[in-house]
Amino acid sequence: MLSSRRGANQLPTYLILCIVCCLLFALEIFFTIPQTPRHIITWATSNLASIVNLPSTGVDAVSNYITDREVVLQHLNDLERESVELKVQNQRIQSLEQENNELRSLLEIYSSDDRFDFIVAELRSKIQTHSRDEVYLNQGSTDGVEPGRAVIDVSGIYGQVVEVQPFLSRIVRITDQRIAIPARVQRSGLNVVLSGVGDGRHLAMEYATVTWDVKEDDVIVASGLGGVYPAGYPIGVVTSIRHEETGVEATVIVEPSAQIDRRRWLLILMKETNTETSQE
């Protein structure tokens, strides 16, 4: 009976020893515990070296970060420069395509109308004020250009040659207040005279009255009177009609068919070809 009581009293002690053994076994597996003075010195020295090298390691890490950041920034700058260059090239291509389409349209006019000889001219400069609306073209007397010749674009009548130099021609555009254009309302056949209103974008019918047979959206073409502008060429479209307070006069505004401020290439109409001679 005494031995059984003693065994019962020692059971908690055995249990505690087992738990301690398990903990030591776990520590042995998962952690390296220095067991000898040599191991203790080695462990302390290795950790001390890591601590001593910590500033150098930090400096290297910062240096690598700065270097990587500079490389990334340089790469971004290169990409941005390439993007700008591509945009410039794209704009050049679009400009060339537009110019090519414009020249192709002029060539179609040249080949479809055998009444006149044409000279293709390029716009060089522009003079535009309230009282003047002029441009200079790169064709002159050495190319056979003479004063009084009509100038057209792919959409309609553009202006008239008023001065010629050896390599330049001065053109008064149809929106100039000083110019008068004999015209005709295509729908009704009414003969009218157009002149610029001074804004560089519109023309007006001179001496218009409320009794004239003209309506908004009427197409206005050259009448051919005066011999400058060929009959039937488009001049513009009526955009507004306003009756004045007098009850007699009217203000009729016409928007040009020609792209006045959007053309670089134009056609100068030369002498009318002799169709009878060509047929012979």
Rank of each mutant, 00 (worst) to 15 (best):
Q128G: 02
R173V: 02
I93Q: 07
S63A: 09
R132I: 01
A8C: 11
S56I: 12
V237D: 07
F167D: 15
I19L: 15
Y14M: 07
S50W: 11
I51A: 10
R132W: 07
L17D: 14
A180D: 14
D113L: 00
Q186R: 09
V84W: 05
Q186T: 03
L267M: 01
E244Y: 00
N274L: 06
D176P: 02
R81N: 12
L48K: 03
V145D: 11
E122W: 05
K126M: 10
S195V: 06
G148Y: 00
Q98H: 11
L24T: 04
L107S: 07
Y14V: 02
T45Y: 14
S95F: 08
T45F: 15
L168N: 09
I268V: 07
A250F: 00
V145W: 06
T251M: 10
L106M: 01
Y65F: 14
L269E: 07
I16K: 15
I40L: 14
R38I: 12
P12F: 09
Q98D: 14
T175V: 08
S112W: 05
D176S: 09
S50C: 11
T45Q: 12
N53W: 12
L106C: 00
V120L: 12
T67Q: 15
L86W: 08
N101L: 04
I40P: 07
F118S: 04
I16T: 15
F25K: 11
Q186D: 06
E280L: 13
N274T: 02
L137T: 02
R124G: 02
S155E: 10
N191I: 00
Q10F: 13
T275L: 15
Q186P: 00
L168K: 10
D60A: 10
V214A: 05
I220F: 03
W212Y: 08
L267D: 04
I181L: 04
Y65N: 08
Q94A: 12
R38T: 13
D176R: 00
V221M: 06
G232H: 01
R178V: 09
R149W: 01
L137C: 03
V210M: 03
